[in-house]
Design a protein around this nucleic acid. Structure first.
Lengths: 243, 243
DNA sequence: AGTTATTTGTCCGTATGTATA
DNA sequence: ATATACATACGGACAAATAAC
């Protein structure tokens, strides 16, 4: 078995990454199998945990393995992805703003699904939903209103979290291990209604950029519906298209 | 200044990542500036170096900062691209419409470039432009207003064509041999102004979906600027994001 | 040109928590 | 319950690149 060169010419984690990389491409570790654990690699190559981890994190970042806590690291691909993605879509502020911003919780409730959300989440009207309403502020200036909808059964312990302080992203990736596969966004221009206008400190009828996003998990099931109302004087959407 | 929650509910590195992420998006750290060093973050938040590093590595992985040994970590972007990269975008009608539609020419003029269009087409204010204004109708019902701008020198014989009947696309590909390489679209929600509203048979202040598209030719020079004002009650934009 | 302080890069050891089998 | 495996977080040490003096 190959051993590492400790002379310092090449980083240890990179040497190990390269060994594992080649072993996966050559089929020494087949797709579906587990590669050696971190502690096994420590013993085998005489390195520290951090070094073994870094090599494995690089493999995961390149999409070759899937790390699972308590289980191991499974080979999921034997051809590294090299595709360059040029197409981007992002929200842009119309004005520069130097102050820091924060999300404030309006409410977090359990409620029955209406017709629209039921259709979006591919469930039945009346199904219990978890709804989060938050407003992003910069100081006392409201920026946008965001409403997140999930099936209650999908986010069992969500009600116990304080998502005004905690990140939803972290909750999904760490606690629920959800990975989004695709999403559909619908972008509308609307006028602020009597309920939304005061929340954003706008006059009734002021223009809003309304974006509805439905996100699908790895099994292609709709899991999240987010409706965001952006103050049109502060935000626009930008899309870059490459041919 | 915000401090971290050490209760263990949310990972420290993620809390720090989120703080820095928001500070970059809000412009508290502007593009070109350096974010605080690892040791500064350790002091400021009372965390270890590994934790500060992990947060910064996430920012770098998302393309927001550029780390340079011996120098610091420079903000290079304030608009993170969505984790989902492949984008397909469609303009969709909100209502089904069975009747036939047609584009009617409002006017075709030569005019000097204003500041905005000059910047979009990377030319100087006052440059002679060819402007086409058309409205798509279905019967007597107007759907959207479209304004096309080109440098006059780029479309020498355009003024002799009747683009209410002839296709612009055909003119560019057959007569001018232009091939579009990429385009940037900006999507805004606006209220109809006093000039646009009557053209679309709307009340002043009615919401419009305003899309500005700048198209670049094979040499990556901006050649076309199209501004389209869609009646918000009739159109929305749909975007699919794939991983 | 050389020294020094700063900043990030690499690597080690250790401890504890959490998910899985 | 127990053992295994990965996740998070702490501490320390030295190296290499950069910039300022």
């Amino acid at each position: 078995m190959a051993s590492l060169d400790f002379s310092g010419k090449e980083q240890l984690y990179y040497q190990l990454y390269d060994i594992l990389f080649q072993d996966i491409l050559s089929g020494a570790y087949a797709v579906g199998e587990l590669i050696p654990s971190e502690s096994e690699l420590m013993r085998r190559y005489g390195i520290s945990r951090a070094t073994a981890r870094k090599a494995m994190e690089m493999l995961a970042a390149n999409g070759l393995i899937n790390k699972r806590r308590g289980h191991g690291s499974e080979v999921v691909s034997n051809h590294p992805s090299s595709a360059l993605q040029h197409v981007k879509s992002y929200l842009k502020k119309n004005v520069v703003d130097k102050s820091t911003s924060e999300k404030r919780l309006i409410d977090a409730t359990i409620m029955p699904a209406g017709k629209e959300i039921a259709a979006a989440l591919d469930t039945d009207p009346g199904t219990e939903l978890y709804r989060l309403r938050r407003v992003r502020y910069s100081g006392e200036q409201p920026f946008y209103l965001e409403m997140n909808y999930y099936e209650r059964s999908f986010v069992p312990h969500a009600i116990e979290h304080d998502f005004s302080r905690e990140s939803l992203r972290a909750y999904f990736s760490s606690e629920l291990d959800v990975h989004w596969r695709r999403a559909v966004q619908q972008i509308y221009s609307i006028a602020a209604d009597r309920e939304t206008a005061p929340l954003l400190q706008l006059a009734f009828g002021a223009p809003l950029l309304y974006i509805r996003r439905i996100s699908f998990d790895a099994e292609n099931r709709p899991r999240e519906c987010v409706m965001t109302y952006y103050r049109a004087d502060l935000y626009h959407l930008e899309i870059e298209l490459d041919s």
